[in-house]
């Protein structure tokens, strides 16, 4: 028996919005410690890694490990039926071919149940090694989304350049060039408003605008985003999911022609 109950059901709705444009389907690996999802996007350019710890759920039970292959378009349709203040429970029998979503209104007066067929997915799991990154940049997630959106008007790529002074985002294309510099902030009232650069070595890498913009669909999950960069390895874009876990996007850098 697998059962995971989340009083703050809106988090699950937001997680779905953050992955459904990148992935058509994905396996949810449910284990005693929590739920993991790891999948490459359809073009194998980026990787999504989602981690929801059991401690983050209001009730979590997983008697034996199960892998639930889900069509994310279908799951997204079902989660759209949940209100933002609904309590969401996911449950499945040990060797079931369906998963059930239960949505309870806060006053328990309305209870909806949706059963969805599971899929057999044969997905390549990638091993993500522990990496020491040269630059780790924390910035407000809304600011990052704004920068990606603004720069995507100029070209298909965004160059992210990190030095000890701060971080520079640039793009160039037919209409001209754009440069946005963010300096490290001094003291701020709210930690989530800060721009913090932890740099060992300066790094400049180029990434696809299209993918960065898709990652920013996770913005509602967290006020802060963390970018980790090293030369010649994928960028990591991480959003915390409340107290439950995190979503990480790995994007391979673009290579000059």
């Amino acid at each position: 028996m697998f059962e995971a109950r989340l009083v703050q059901g809106s988090l699950l709705k937001k997680v779905m919005e953050a992955i459904k444009d990148l992935l058509n389907e994905a396996s949810f690996d449910c284990a005693h410690s929590g739920i993991l999802l790891q999948a490459m996007d359809n073009s194998h350019v980026s990787l999504v890694s989602l981690n929801l710890r059991k401690e983050g759920f209001d009730k979590y039970r997983c008697d034996r490990n199960i892998v639930m292959g889900m069509n994310l378009t279908s799951m997204s349709k079902i989660l759209k039926c949940a209100s933002n203040d609904d309590i969401i429970t996911m449950k499945a029998q040990d060797s079931a071919d369906t998963v059930t979503f239960v949505f309870e209104s806060p006053n328990q007066e309305k209870v909806s149940e949706y059963e969805m067929k599971l899929m057999n997915l044969d997905q390549d799991q990638l091993g993500i090694p522990e990496t020491e990154y040269c630059c780790i940049i924390k910035l407000p997630s809304g600011e990052f989304a704004r920068i990606c959106r603004d720069l995507s008007q100029f070209g298909e790529s965004i160059v992210i350049s990190c030095t000890k002074e701060g971080v520079k985002f640039s793009a160039a294309g037919d209409i001209g060039t754009a440069n946005i510099k963010l300096a490290q902030t001094g003291t701020v009232d709210k930690e989530e408003d800060a721009v913090i650069v932890d740099m060992q070595e300066p790094v400049t890498l180029t990434f696809s605008c299209k993918y960065l913009n898709m990652f920013t669909k996770a913005t509602p999950l967290s006020p802060q985003v963390c970018l980790s960069m090293s030369p010649d390895v994928p960028l990591v874009v991480e959003y915390k999911i409340g107290e439950i876990g995190h979503i990480r996007y790995y994007l391979a850098p673009r290579i000059g022609d």
Partner: peptide
């Protein structure tokens, strides 16, 4: 024209 690398070339299958 810049080529986009595949993510699988960076991470070995586990």
């Amino acid at each position: 024209n810049m080529s986009q690398s595949l993510i699988s070339s960076f991470f070995s299958p586990s």
